[in-house]
């Protein structure tokens, strides 16, 4: 066989999707539209998760109904990543008295951050926003 010109086929896979959130996630997202953060407690082992989850991340049992929590976070750890519109700080934040930590953005100069620092949510002005309702977390300024 003689070698011929090799072709490259440029193709797309373009598909629409619609994901059902489910009751627990829906209740959590609904809370965000009302500026409320919600968690769930495992009915079996007591593990408290924020954000709310349908199943316990430790023992996989069903969780009990969602609870509203204090909109207060504590900084566990963070990293600075370059971004075209300035660097971003991604952080692991323990929300209220959760047993887990959540990944979110922190809006602050990384040089001023300290482990255990208290954080508050910075809400977006968009009243329709769900998962994007918290734009970022920021250090609570002492008054």
């Amino acid at each position: 066989m003689t070698l011929s010109e090799e072709l490259i086929l440029h193709q797309k896979i373009n598909l629409p999707y619609r994901y059902t959130a489910g009751t627990v996630t829906e209740t959590f997202l609904e809370g965000l539209t009302e500026r409320t953060i919600r968690g769930t407690r495992c009915a079996a082992c007591g593990h408290f998760s924020v954000p709310a989850r349908p199943f316990c991340p430790v023992c996989s049992e069903h969780t009990s109904s969602t609870e509203d929590v204090e909109p207060l976070g504590h900084l566990e750890s963070w990293t600075e990543t370059p971004h075209e519109s300035g660097s971003r700080v991604f952080a692991l934040i323990r929300i209220a008295d959760a047993d887990n930590v959540a990944l979110h953005l922190v809006d602050a100069d990384p040089n001023t951050l300290e482990e255990g620092m208290a954080l508050e949510p910075q809400w977006t002005p968009d009243p329709e926003a769900e998962i994007t309702a918290i734009r970022a977390w920021r250090p609570i300024r002492e008054t």
Binding site: L9, Q11, K12, Y17, A21, E26, L29
Partner: peptide, 22 residues
Amino acid sequence: PLRLEYVANFEYAYAAGRYASR
């Protein structure tokens, strides 16, 4: 119920290989 709608649009460049190319 809440349904999160989106379109996934992936672009690929497949090498056709010797037989398909010919």
